[in-house]
Design a protein around this nucleic acid. Structure first.
Length: 840
RNA sequence: GCCGAGAUGGCGGAACUGGCAGACGCGCCGGACUCAAAAUCCGGUGGGGUUAACCCCCCGUGUGGGUUCGAUUCCCUCUCUCGGCACCA
């Protein structure tokens, strides 16, 4: 649903000091005294052999301990009524309780959690709720296959997935959890339905649905697999069938959905949305048949009206039967049946030859009065526009193909630029000048569109009109495991909405529900549910037995999380005003493709190898911190990609190194030299440069590069530790900064090490480290010396060097001398604190 | 077909506003430790040429062109990959 797609991460401008920081790291490294190498290893070795097992990094124990403590202390409970700080609402896709979390969930959620934790440390009042999208077909399938009741199956899965989600160590506020299959939740689906019904936005009509002939059931779109359109469960080709269905009139809001002015959506998502809505401007043109019927045709090119030489109706068009000449009825019927039998994929194949059929009737051209034939053809779709078009072969490729096949005339009415008056070799669909168009001759086609529409309106034969590809939302499912639609059918009063005070209409969970579908909702066979009384007259009546699409649940869950009293209202207005809009949503369009990929892979693997990419074993082996950090490290988050665990060792090693940095003594025995002023400066420099890098990366949701920076900092600190003894203030600042920056990414180990350093509980309630630009500043830089754009030398110079001096130094370098070869420079380009390019 | 995103070592990926391409990690190679292996630690690692060695040189960010002192970065062409839409009138 369009409303589900929220904005992606913003891209703040970013300033990195990467090369500078790197130089600093190297510098710190270079300070490593030769003594280190020479130092005798023996004592260190023995001590390492004796001591190590006791204090090795043991993720499982640490993680369990801190998770318990956080839970006890309610560390992640958000007081929604606290107005003190700037709010930040993180929303992530709530999972379907399929039974097991897969790696795609972790991929979507860990970076979200890291971002949420980062915001919290930056002083925001963060809300990060979690829940379950608990209605849906898999529960019913499980019931059919294994005889477990959908409710039981769902609840069992939710219990397991809660445990798995907790093992991630995310800062979800479980006190606000929502489970959509609970009456307190779905009663509001029903309530919304009733409001829509009253406003005329919920209506019922006959509509074609996907139908599996073997399972005797209606399928949701996502249950129809692949281009072959096979049933998900039994791989039988799906067919179309007409059934009475409930709809929400979302098309009424199409234009509103296209207005992005108040949205902060990415280009890509806007395009998707625009595509999806498919707005077309044009005109509705009424052709009268000779029998007097009005045929409404939609066209985006009213300017080509004078070139219309035939009318095409969709085979399903309601006028087909009325208009067909008696002697052609049989054949028309045959063609219509053939078209209906085709699967969508055949019908919609663009390269297929156009087929059509003259139905033996004619219509009158509204402007010229010409007599033009009425045909039916399967390239016209009932579901779009009016289901009828005017055929303008000279200016539409499909009409061209159709006209050529059936030898219809193709008069040119839009002259292409520089047209020589000769017949065209193919359809010309571009803009041009109107010709052979009576009073409109000479009008540019762009203006003609408007003018022709006005003319039609003036004579009552049409008007300017807009159509959309977007259809109304079909919300009914002939299924058991969903929200009952709160409607009652009375013989006397027809369709009667359930009174609001009677909500919720409870989905019966007793054993009398038969799940094997008969092409109708299983609820139809549940007499106690089915039979009720009419709210108006009190006489026996029947309930609607269809249930709602699960998208209804998820279209408002961001409100439900903010609700503290689901019994009284769907959401709390004051809290909604305070907390919405959602500040960051993950799980939308981009990550959806990742989850799909992970899902596909999992499917494939389960088929071929009998195993699935499950996070649990990984967590047991590496710990949640490593798994989280690895998922964030592998690449830019929004690019996704297939799951591949090679490389996870690198992340594990990093956390290990951070562990030893804090926990272990320096390798070398005996006193280290006191750190020199230069060493202290260099250490603080790398610390503060890293703070800057990591802060920028966290802001930009670039966890991969944030982790790289932290790895570099860890290395630099480890080397510094071996090289010298730093004053407690300096060393403390450095190690604290490292841990604080690790906290969002690897929350458990950061908390543990923080505690060991004597830090106040909890690290997750500390402020994000402040960046000191003074400390980060470099004293010198490497001036690149180029001759004709190629690097020929480098020279280390002080920061803030003037151009004249830089030029002097650069020209004096051996590299420059060699390539200048005595020639005088023609031009010298100086880029401040970067390079000098000498052009000869 | 249309729209969008992308293409950088053996692999995942990095690169500010046009300024040292390949950060960080994996893998691989070499070394230390070990009876040995694992683990750990240290060093190396784009390709080619040249050298006894150090040095040094050339090529290199999908293709071809352009702008520029200088292009992974900006512009145009083409190829391929991924995603969306697709007989939408």
């Amino acid at each position: 649903m369009a409303t589900k797609i929220l904005s992606k991460t913003k891209k703040p401008t970013k300033t990195t000091t990467k090369p500078v920081a790197r130089a600093a790291v190297k510098k710190v490294a270079a300070k490593k005294p030769a003594a280190k190498k020479a130092a005798t290893r023996k004592p260190a070795t023995t001590s390492r052999r004796r001591a190590p097992r006791r204090d090795r990094y043991a993720p499982t124990a640490i993680e369990a301990r801190w998770q318990k403590r956080w839970e006890q202390d309610g560390l992640y409970r958000t007081d929604l009524n606290d107005h003190g700080r700037k709010k930040f609402y993180f929303l992530t896709m709530y999972p379907y309780p399929s039974g097991d979390l897969h790696i795609g969930h972790w991929y979507a959620m860990s970076p979200s959690d890291a971002a949420a934790r980062y915001r919290r440390m930056k002083g925001y009042h963060v809300f990060f709720p979690m829940g379950f999208d608990a209605f849906g077909l898999p529960a019913e399938n499980a019931a059919i296959k294994r005889g477990i009741h959908p409710y039981k199956w769902t609840m069992k899965n939710i219990a397991n997935m809660r445990r798995q989600l907790r093992s991630m160590g995310a800062m979800f506020d479980w006190s606000k959890e929502v489970v959509t299959c609970m009456p307190d939740y779905y009663r509001w689906n029903q309530w919304f339905f009733l409001q829509f019904f009253k406003a005329g936005l919920a209506y019922k009509k006959l509509a074609p649905v996907d139908w599996c002939p073997k399972d005797q059931t209606v399928l949701a779109r996502e249950q129809v697999i692949g281009d072959e359109r096979l049933c998900e469960r039994c791989e039988t080709p799906v067919v179309k069938r007409d059934l009475e269905q409930w709809f929400f009139r979302i098309t009424k809001y199409a234009d509103e959905l296209l207005d992005f002015s108040k949205m902060n959506w990415s280009e890509r998502v806007q395009t998707l949305q625009t595509n999806w809505i498919g707005r077309s401007e044009g005109a509705e043109i009424i052709f009268r048949s000779e029998s007097g019927e009005a045929i409404q045709c939609f066209s985006t090119r009213p300017d080509t009206l004078y070139g219309a030489t035939f009318i095409v109706l969709a085979p399903e068009h309601p006028l087909v039967e009325t208009l067909a000449a008696p002697e052609r009825k049989a054949e028309v019927e045959q063609y219509v049946q053939a078209a209906r039998r085709q699967s969508d994929i055949d019908r919609e194949a663009t390269d297929k030859e156009k087929s059509g059929f003259f139905i033996g009737a004619h219509a009158t051209h509204p402007l010229t009065g010409a007599r033009i034939p009425i045909t039916i053809a399967d390239y016209v779709l009932m579901g779009y526009g009016t289901g009828a078009i005017m055929g303008v072969p000279a200016h539409d490729e499909r009409d061209w193909a159709f006209a050529k096949k059936y030898n219809l005339p193709t008069p040119v009415v839009i002259a292409p630029p520089g047209w020589d008056g000769q017949p065209l070799a193919e359809a010309y669909t571009g803009e041009g000048t109107m010709v052979n168009s009576g009073p409109f001759d000479g009008t540019p086609s762009a203006d003609g569109k408007r003018m022709v529409a006005q003319k039609l309106e003036a004579i009552g034969a049409g008007k300017a009109a807009v159509t959309y590809r977007l259809r109304d939302w079909l919300i009914s499912r002939q299924r058991y495991w969903g929200t009952p639609i709160p409607i009652i059918y009375c013989d006397e009063h027809g369709i009667v909405p359930v009174p609001e005070e009677d909500l919720p209409v409870i989905l019966p969970t007793d054993a009398r529900v038969k799940f094997n579908p008969q092409g109708q909702s299983p609820l139809l066979f549940h007499k106690k549910f089915l039979n009720t009384t009419c709210p108006i007259c009190g006489r026996p009546a029947r309930r609607e037995t269809d249930t709602m699409d699960t998208f209804v649940d998820s279209s408002w869950y961001q409100y439900a999380f903010l609700n503290t009293n689901m019994k009284a209202e769907p959401f709390n207005r004051a809290l909604a005003d305070q907390w919405l809009p959602v500040d960051q949503y993950t799980g939308g369009i981009d990550h959806a493709t990742m989850v799909e990929k992970a899902g596909e892979r999992a499917k494939k693997m389960s088929k071929s190898k009998g195993n699935v990419v499950a996070p649990d074993p990984l967590v047991r082996r590496y710990g949640a911190d490593t798994v989280r950090a690895f998922l964030m490290f592998i690449g830019p988050w929004d690019q996704g990609g297939p799951w591949d665990s090679s490389g996870i060792d690198g992340v594990r090693k990093w956390i290990n190194r951070a562990w030893s940095l804090i926990v272990e003594r320096p390798t070398a025995k005996g006193p280290r030299p006191a750190a020199s002023d230069d060493q202290i400066k260099a250490l603080r420099r790398v610390v503060h440069q890293t703070i800057q890098r990591v802060t920028d990366d966290m802001e930009a949701f670039k966890h991969n590069t944030a982790i790289s920076a932290l790895m570099e900092l860890t290395t630099a600190l480890a080397r510094a530790k071996e090289a010298a003894a730093y004053p407690a203030t300096v060393w403390g600042e450095a190690t604290r900064a490292l841990l604080l920056m690790m906290a969002p990414i690897a929350p458990h180990v950061a908390e543990e090490l923080w505690a060991r350093l004597g830090g106040a509980y909890s690290i997750h309630q500390q402020a994000w480290p402040a960046y000191d630009p003074q400390a980060a500043v470099e004293e010198s830089f490497t001036l690149i010396v180029q001759v004709n754009g190629r690097v020929r030398d480098r020279v280390q110079v002080p920061m803030g060097i003037g151009e004249a001096r830089a030029r002097e130094l650069a020209l004096a370098t051996p590299g420059a001398q060699k390539y200048l070869d005595g020639k005088a420079p023609r031009q010298v380009i100086y880029v401040k604190e970067k390079l000098i390019n000498i052009v000869v």
